[in-house]
């Protein structure tokens, strides 16, 4: 399972709704005809996912582009 987020990238973020810390957990992400599990920070209580900016604009974009050319 891929892990793209380090602890220090989300340790200062909390779920505002639940006032709860985040923890790395398996989340399924999908695009076009592919889906795969990734370890992402989520709220321990409600499961709300946190995608850090650096992940979105680098690795996720790269994977999106690769999948688009398949």
């Amino acid at each position: 399972m891929a892990q793209y987020v380090n602890n220090d990238e989300f340790s200062h973020w909390r779920c505002d709704k639940c006032n709860c810390e985040l923890e790395l957990k398996k989340v399924v992400v999908s695009y076009l005809e592919g889906s795969f599990p990734v370890d992402l920070p989520v709220c321990k209580n409600c499961g709300q996912v946190f995608i850090p900016e650096s992940l979105a604009i680098h690795k996720m974009l790269e994977i999106e582009q690769q999948m688009e050319d398949k």
Binding site: V28, V29, C46, G47, V49, A56
Partner: peptide, 12 residues
């Protein structure tokens, strides 16, 4: 602000 096209299957 930032964005992505990948869909995240969230619990809630």
């Amino acid at each position: 602000a930032y964005s992505h096209r990948m869909f995240i299957e969230e619990a809630n």
